[in-house]
Simulated scan of single mutants.
Amino acid sequence: MAKVDEAGPAAPKYEAEQQTREVPPPPYISQEPPKAPPPGVASPNTVPLDHLGAESSNVHCPECGYTGPSEVKHKVGGATILSIAGLFFLGCTVFGCCLLPLCISGLKDAEHRCPRCRNELATYARLERRTMTGRPH
Protein backbone atom coordinates (compact mmCIF):
# COMPACT_ATOMS: atom_id res chain seq x y z
CA MET A 1 0.00 0.00 0.00
CA ALA A 2 1.25 3.43 -0.89
CA LYS A 3 1.07 6.14 1.72
CA VAL A 4 -0.49 9.41 0.72
CA ASP A 5 1.42 12.52 1.79
CA GLU A 6 -0.97 14.70 3.78
CA ALA A 7 0.88 17.93 2.99
CA GLY A 8 0.77 17.32 -0.77
CA PRO A 9 -2.96 17.93 -1.44
CA ALA A 10 -3.12 20.87 1.03
CA ALA A 11 -0.61 23.00 -0.87
CA PRO A 12 -2.67 23.45 -4.07
CA LYS A 13 -5.78 24.18 -2.02
CA TYR A 14 -3.91 26.97 -0.18
CA GLU A 15 -2.70 28.51 -3.44
CA ALA A 16 -6.25 28.45 -4.82
CA GLU A 17 -7.59 30.24 -1.72
CA GLN A 18 -4.85 32.84 -1.93
CA GLN A 19 -5.61 33.61 -5.57
CA THR A 20 -9.35 34.08 -5.00
CA ARG A 21 -8.95 36.33 -1.98
CA GLU A 22 -9.70 39.97 -2.77
CA VAL A 23 -6.91 42.46 -2.09
CA PRO A 24 -8.05 45.89 -0.81
CA PRO A 25 -6.84 48.90 -2.78
CA PRO A 26 -4.00 51.00 -1.34
CA PRO A 27 -5.19 53.59 1.21
CA TYR A 28 -4.12 56.58 -0.87
CA ILE A 29 -6.53 55.60 -3.65
CA SER A 30 -9.62 54.91 -1.55
CA GLN A 31 -9.19 57.74 0.97
CA GLU A 32 -9.17 61.48 0.45
CA PRO A 33 -5.84 63.27 0.99
CA PRO A 34 -5.49 65.10 4.32
CA LYS A 35 -6.97 68.58 4.18
CA ALA A 36 -5.03 71.68 5.17
CA PRO A 37 -6.44 73.56 8.16
CA PRO A 38 -8.50 76.65 7.36
CA PRO A 39 -6.68 80.00 7.52
CA GLY A 40 -6.22 81.28 11.06
CA VAL A 41 -6.18 77.79 12.63
CA ALA A 42 -2.98 76.08 13.73
CA SER A 43 -2.29 72.64 12.29
CA PRO A 44 -1.80 69.70 14.66
CA ASN A 45 1.98 69.54 14.12
CA THR A 46 2.65 73.11 15.30
CA VAL A 47 4.09 73.90 18.71
CA PRO A 48 2.10 76.26 20.96
CA LEU A 49 3.93 79.57 21.40
CA ASP A 50 4.26 79.14 25.15
CA HIS A 51 6.05 75.77 24.66
CA LEU A 52 8.80 76.93 22.29
CA GLY A 53 12.37 76.08 23.25
CA ALA A 54 15.80 77.17 22.11
CA GLU A 55 15.54 75.59 18.63
CA SER A 56 13.37 76.49 15.65
CA SER A 57 9.95 74.79 15.67
CA ASN A 58 6.83 74.70 13.53
CA VAL A 59 4.59 77.57 14.66
CA HIS A 60 1.42 79.38 13.63
CA CYS A 61 1.75 83.18 13.46
CA PRO A 62 -1.36 84.89 14.87
CA GLU A 63 -0.63 88.06 12.85
CA CYS A 64 -0.26 86.83 9.25
CA GLY A 65 -1.41 83.18 9.48
CA TYR A 66 1.98 81.71 8.48
CA THR A 67 2.46 78.08 9.50
CA GLY A 68 5.98 76.70 9.35
CA PRO A 69 9.37 76.86 11.05
CA SER A 70 10.11 79.90 13.17
CA GLU A 71 13.15 82.10 12.69
CA VAL A 72 15.39 82.05 15.77
CA LYS A 73 17.81 84.80 16.77
CA HIS A 74 20.01 84.34 19.84
CA LYS A 75 20.34 87.34 22.16
CA VAL A 76 22.33 88.01 25.30
CA GLY A 77 20.27 87.16 28.37
CA GLY A 78 20.60 86.45 32.06
CA ALA A 79 22.47 83.15 31.64
CA THR A 80 25.06 84.87 29.44
CA ILE A 81 25.63 87.69 31.95
CA LEU A 82 25.94 85.29 34.89
CA SER A 83 28.43 83.16 32.96
CA ILE A 84 30.57 86.21 32.20
CA ALA A 85 30.45 87.34 35.84
CA GLY A 86 31.33 83.84 37.08
CA LEU A 87 34.33 83.55 34.76
CA PHE A 88 35.47 87.05 35.72
CA PHE A 89 35.40 86.25 39.45
CA LEU A 90 37.20 82.95 38.84
CA GLY A 91 40.07 84.96 37.33
CA CYS A 92 39.54 84.23 33.64
CA THR A 93 40.45 87.77 32.65
CA VAL A 94 43.53 86.98 30.56
CA PHE A 95 42.90 87.99 26.94
CA GLY A 96 39.24 88.59 27.78
CA CYS A 97 38.45 84.90 28.32
CA CYS A 98 35.58 85.85 30.60
CA LEU A 99 33.79 87.19 27.49
CA LEU A 100 33.66 83.75 25.83
CA PRO A 101 29.97 83.23 26.75
CA LEU A 102 29.16 86.01 24.25
CA CYS A 103 30.24 83.59 21.49
CA ILE A 104 28.24 80.60 22.73
CA SER A 105 24.65 80.53 21.47
CA GLY A 106 23.84 77.78 24.00
CA LEU A 107 24.03 80.40 26.77
CA LYS A 108 21.90 83.02 25.01
CA ASP A 109 18.13 83.50 25.00
CA ALA A 110 16.27 82.42 21.84
CA GLU A 111 13.92 84.92 20.20
CA HIS A 112 11.38 83.31 17.84
CA ARG A 113 10.05 85.43 14.95
CA CYS A 114 7.71 84.82 12.03
CA PRO A 115 9.85 84.69 8.86
CA ARG A 116 7.03 86.23 6.80
CA CYS A 117 5.93 89.30 8.82
CA ARG A 118 8.86 89.48 11.31
CA ASN A 119 6.40 89.50 14.23
CA GLU A 120 8.04 88.52 17.53
CA LEU A 121 6.26 85.33 18.59
CA ALA A 122 8.05 84.32 21.79
CA THR A 123 11.35 84.44 23.65
CA TYR A 124 12.86 81.42 25.40
CA ALA A 125 14.80 82.59 28.48
CA ARG A 126 17.53 80.09 29.34
CA LEU A 127 18.04 81.27 32.90
CA GLU A 128 14.35 80.97 33.75
CA ARG A 129 13.83 77.92 31.48
CA ARG A 130 10.49 79.27 30.31
CA THR A 131 9.05 80.90 27.23
CA MET A 132 7.50 84.36 27.24
CA THR A 133 5.01 84.99 24.45
CA GLY A 134 4.40 88.31 22.77
CA ARG A 135 6.37 91.49 23.12
CA PRO A 136 7.59 92.42 26.60
CA HIS A 137 6.17 95.74 27.82
Rank of each mutant, 00 (worst) to 15 (best):
residue 1 M to S: 13
residue 2 A to W: 13
residue 2 A to K: 15
residue 3 K to Q: 13
residue 4 V to M: 12
residue 4 V to G: 15
residue 5 D to S: 15
residue 6 E to Y: 14
residue 8 G to A: 14
residue 9 P to K: 11
residue 11 A to W: 12
residue 12 P to C: 10
residue 14 Y to I: 12
residue 14 Y to Q: 12
residue 14 Y to D: 07
residue 15 E to R: 14
residue 15 E to H: 12
residue 16 A to R: 14
residue 18 Q to F: 05
residue 18 Q to R: 11
residue 19 Q to I: 03
residue 19 Q to N: 08
residue 19 Q to K: 11
residue 20 T to I: 04
residue 24 P to G: 05
residue 28 Y to L: 10
residue 28 Y to T: 10
residue 28 Y to F: 14
residue 28 Y to V: 10
residue 29 I to Q: 14
residue 29 I to C: 08
residue 30 S to Y: 10
residue 31 Q to P: 04
residue 33 P to R: 08
residue 33 P to Y: 09
residue 34 P to N: 02
residue 35 K to C: 07
residue 41 V to S: 01
residue 44 P to A: 00
residue 45 N to M: 01
residue 46 T to K: 01
residue 47 V to G: 00
residue 48 P to C: 02
residue 49 L to Q: 00
residue 50 D to Y: 02
residue 52 L to V: 05
residue 57 S to C: 05
residue 58 N to D: 05
residue 59 V to N: 00
residue 59 V to P: 00
residue 59 V to S: 01
residue 60 H to I: 03
residue 62 P to H: 03
residue 63 E to F: 06
residue 64 C to P: 11
residue 67 T to M: 04
residue 69 P to A: 06
residue 69 P to N: 04
residue 72 V to F: 01
residue 77 G to H: 06
residue 79 A to E: 06
residue 80 T to R: 02
residue 81 I to P: 00
residue 84 I to Q: 06
residue 85 A to N: 01
residue 88 F to H: 10
residue 88 F to R: 06
residue 89 F to A: 13
residue 89 F to Y: 11
residue 91 G to C: 06
residue 93 T to L: 14
residue 95 F to G: 03
residue 96 G to Y: 12
residue 97 C to Q: 10
residue 97 C to R: 07
residue 98 C to Y: 13
residue 99 L to S: 12
residue 101 P to Y: 02
residue 103 C to L: 15
residue 105 S to C: 07
residue 108 K to Q: 11
residue 110 A to T: 03
residue 110 A to F: 05
residue 111 E to G: 00
residue 111 E to P: 01
residue 112 H to Y: 00
residue 113 R to Y: 09
residue 114 C to P: 02
residue 114 C to G: 03
residue 118 R to G: 07
residue 120 E to F: 01
residue 121 L to C: 06
residue 123 T to I: 09
residue 124 Y to A: 01
residue 124 Y to S: 01
residue 126 R to P: 02
residue 127 L to R: 08
residue 128 E to D: 11
residue 129 R to L: 09
residue 129 R to Y: 07
residue 130 R to H: 12
residue 130 R to G: 04
residue 132 M to E: 10
residue 133 T to C: 02
residue 134 G to M: 04
residue 135 R to Y: 11
residue 135 R to H: 12
residue 137 H to N: 14
